[in-house]
Simulated assay, not measured.
Amino acid sequence: MYTQKIGYLEFRYGADAKRQTANVGDSIQSIAVRRLLRRLAVDDANIVGIDRDSLKQYAGPPVKLIMNGCFNERCFPLPPQITPVFFGFNAESESVITKNKPLFKQHQPIGCRDNATKSLFDKHGIAAFVTGCATLTFDKRDQTAATALPVIAFGAGSGVLQQKLLENVPKPLLENARLVYQREPVGEIPLSDDSVAKMDALAQSYLDVYTKASVVVTPLLHVASPCVAMGIPVVLARRDWDDRFTAIDRLLPLYTPTEFSSIDWQVRPLDIEPLKSAMFNVARHLLDDRKPADDDLATLSKCYAARPVLQPPKASKRHWRLRSLFGKR
């Protein structure tokens, strides 16, 4: 049982005064870390939310903070009250690492959300490994609802829904699909406590929708990742490749426009329970200021150090080889 304060990240967007929408995926990350902490026997009274975009200004009591998510230079330096627990850490730029080397050296090995971030730490001589995103630790759903329908979930920016993708979606799937836009208009920046609570409730409502889906089609990391964890078939298709996906692309195919016409629509759920177990164990060790166990690190490495599931064969870039890490799909 933990008696000290353990923190998870909230997202209030105070660093972006012109922002007009909140990303529901950020709130899904918050929910995932809270559930992870409860499973690690952290009492609710000791779980506290801390705003990512004002980390430097934190002046509360001492706290161990789970550093899951994307971090930029504005998040550093951390105040002395915050002890970072690097689990699912993503560096927005290399300068995040170069400008904070002493911090990372002190807390190595660093648990990274993706291989791209791990590679940056490797480059600068800082021990690191890939944990994946904390949203991969969601519990597996009990069963598929008898009335399950497909869901197409999308967002803004690089997470937009591609017309070319829609042209390749099987007609029955498209006609029956529920559309989810995982962005929400906001009337205030930074978000107030009430607004953060509303975003959490909205995120939970979307998770409830995904839990009952027969298949989820999405370009979004924080739709694909929790759905894979919950045992929901996922088609991950987006307009471009992105370094942020260099962990989940080891678990399932990441289709880009040149592959949309060859998507396997008979997708099956993945069984990632061994990976989840290793993630839980690693999180527990990091929270206890202990080095993760070698067997758990080996499990993570087996999953995430592999090459992406979709491989361009030498003969053609139009056809891809599918490789499963966890048996049949």
Rank of each mutant, 00 (worst) to 15 (best):
G111Q: 11
E94S: 09
D243C: 02
S95A: 13
W265A: 04
L286I: 14
D122F: 03
A15V: 09
K18G: 15
H319W: 05
G132A: 09
W320D: 02
W241T: 14
A315P: 04
A22C: 11
K5W: 06
Y8Q: 03
G327Q: 07
P257C: 12
E167M: 09
G111K: 09
Y8I: 03
F104N: 05
R307S: 11
K99L: 10
T135R: 01
R12E: 15
A153N: 12
A247H: 09
C75S: 14
S158V: 14
A237F: 13
H222I: 02
S195F: 01
P312H: 12
E167C: 08
T135I: 04
A128E: 11
I126F: 01
I232K: 05
K276W: 01
R12H: 12
I152M: 11
R113I: 03
D249N: 14
E175H: 02
R284K: 13
P190D: 00
D51A: 15
A213E: 11
E273W: 00
P170F: 13
R307L: 09
D242N: 15
N90S: 13
R321M: 07
K118N: 03
V196H: 06
G88F: 00
P185I: 00
K328Q: 10
T137F: 00
S214C: 01
R244S: 07
A45L: 07
T144A: 11
P269N: 02
A17P: 13
W320M: 04
T246H: 11
N115V: 00
F326C: 13
M67R: 05
Q143P: 01
R329Q: 06
A156F: 10
V96L: 04
G155E: 02
R321I: 05
L37G: 10
G49E: 09
Q182V: 07
L173I: 14
P253N: 11
R113T: 04
A128R: 06
T246P: 00
N68S: 11
K105A: 12
F87D: 05
L9F: 07
G155H: 04
V160S: 14
L236I: 10
L166K: 15
S27H: 11
K328S: 06
R34D: 03
P79V: 09
R244I: 08
E259F: 12
K171Y: 03
T117K: 12
W265S: 07
G88K: 01
I6R: 05
R183E: 01
L40V: 08
F138D: 03
R329F: 06
P109S: 01
M67H: 09
I31N: 10
I263C: 02
G187S: 09
R290I: 01
Y206P: 12
P292Y: 01
M279S: 00
R239Y: 13
D242C: 14
R307A: 09
S192V: 04
G159H: 04
P79D: 03
R113H: 07
C75G: 08
A45M: 08
A315G: 12
D122Y: 05
T131I: 04
K5D: 10
D208A: 15
N115M: 00
D26Y: 05
Q311K: 13
F87C: 02
